[in-house]
Amino acid sequence: MIKFVDVSKTYPNGVKALRGVNLEVKDGEFVGIIGLSGAGKSTLLRSINKMISITSGKLYIDDIEISSIRGKELRMLRRSIGMIFQSFNLVKRMSVYNNVLTGRVAYHPTFKTVFGLFPKEDKLMALESLDTMGILEKAFTRADQLSGGQQQRVALARALTQKPKLILADEPVASLDPITTVQVMDDFARINRDFGITVIANMHHVDLALKYATRIIGIKDGEVVFDGKSKEITDEKLVQIYGRSLRHDEVLGE
């Protein structure tokens, strides 16, 4: 369970990216975060695994307040949270298998991982994640040989290999074409359903968010302006979140 209490974030340059956010996300939810570019979606997401630190308020993950944790505890937190990025963030020159195996590094001491000494269970775990994502046969090819959709699946496999209870996805399909987009979103839905992993995803396309997420959080200028079931979203609510009616590129269309 994730709980934001009056969370704010001010960047060193003075930009207030989050203003007094209060939220609670229960285990197993599929949350879609929508809002204009620059609204603070990425900041919200990244504060959960402390890729950025909040400047005020409290943030609890499973009742542990995370703003003071660091070092080993921080790494333990991060290894329990998978993260998916818009540009996949794979090591392009490395094999798919090694990329996925990096999901295990935080489980072992550094002096072992730097020499690539992973236990056999971990190696199998990495390959099973690839199997789950349907790309096991690509395991020993270089990551940059794969298509965008396949690369995002590798990233998902890397996240799954962490055995996470939560996956954060920052615009996971923004670099993909419409058909691949639907396939990757289906993968997210499947992971959420089959493994009970909580998914929180920022999405540019509102209709995708409405289709896949069970709950929508609308952000505007760092504030939560909508929080409810996907079904409850109306055109007026969208105007409220976006400050205007949707542009053509903000819906995927059918």
Binding site: Y97, G116, K120, K123, L124, L127, E128, L130, D131, L136, A139, F140
Partner: peptide, 16 residues
């Protein structure tokens, strides 16, 4: 499990 184990056997022996 089987598929993953078979795949592990296919892993190129780069370390050699």
């Amino acid at each position: 499990m089987r598929a993953a184990e078979l795949a592990l056997k296919r892993k190129p022996k780069r370390w050699v």
